[in-house]
Simulated assay, not measured.
Amino acid sequence: MTDFQDYHSRIAQIETEAARLAALAGDLSIPVPTCPGWTLAELITHVGQTHRWTAHMLRNRVQERVWSRQVPSGLAEGRSGDAAWLAAGAAEMAEVLRATDPSMEVWTWGPDRRAAWWPRRMLFELVVHRADAELALGAGPEIPAATAIDGVEEFLHNLPSAVWVTRSLAELGAEGATIHLHATDADGEWTITQGPAGRIEWARGHAKGDVAVRGPVSDLLLLLYGRRSPDALTVFGDRALLERWLPAAAF
Rank of each mutant, 00 (worst) to 15 (best):
R20C: 10
H206W: 00
H8W: 01
W109Q: 06
R59A: 12
I30E: 14
L246C: 01
L97S: 05
F236G: 09
G151Q: 07
Q49N: 09
R199W: 01
S218P: 00
A19G: 12
W67V: 02
L86E: 14
A94G: 15
I179V: 11
A116K: 02
F4W: 06
P33N: 02
W164A: 15
S218G: 03
A91C: 07
V106L: 15
M93I: 07
E153I: 01
A76L: 14
A76M: 15
A133S: 11
P230Q: 09
I14T: 03
H51L: 03
V106G: 10
R199H: 14
L169F: 05
D187V: 04
F155K: 05
Y7P: 13
E142S: 12
A116N: 04
L75V: 13
V152A: 03
G78L: 10
T100I: 07
V163F: 08
W38L: 07
V235R: 12
R69V: 07
A174Y: 06
M1S: 12
T108C: 02
P144E: 10
E92L: 08
G74D: 14
A115D: 02
A22F: 09
W67F: 15
A76W: 06
D238S: 14
R10F: 08
I30P: 15
R204P: 01
G140K: 06
S103K: 13
R65D: 12
N60E: 13
A136P: 12
P216G: 11
Q70C: 10
L224S: 00
L97D: 05
L137T: 14
V96K: 01
A19R: 09
A232M: 06
R121D: 15
W190T: 09
N158S: 11
P102H: 09
E171S: 10
R114K: 13
A240F: 04
L181C: 06
P216L: 12
I192E: 14
L75P: 14
S103W: 11
E142C: 09
A177K: 04
A186E: 09
D27T: 03
L181E: 02
P102W: 02
P102A: 07
R98G: 14
G89N: 12
L97H: 04
L40K: 03
A55P: 03
L241P: 04
L159W: 09
M122V: 02
Q63K: 13
P230I: 04
H56R: 10
E201T: 05
V163E: 12
N158I: 12
D6G: 00
V217K: 01
G237P: 02
A240K: 03
E15G: 10
R227Y: 06
D27M: 08
E154V: 06
E77R: 15
R130M: 12
M122A: 04
V66L: 14
L137F: 13
A76K: 15
R52C: 03
L223S: 03
D82V: 05
F251L: 14
G151T: 08
A90M: 00
D210P: 01
G26F: 09
L221K: 00
R61W: 05
T166H: 06
Y7V: 07
R167I: 06
R121F: 11
S29A: 15
Y225M: 05
L97M: 07
D238L: 06
E142V: 11
D101N: 13
A88R: 09
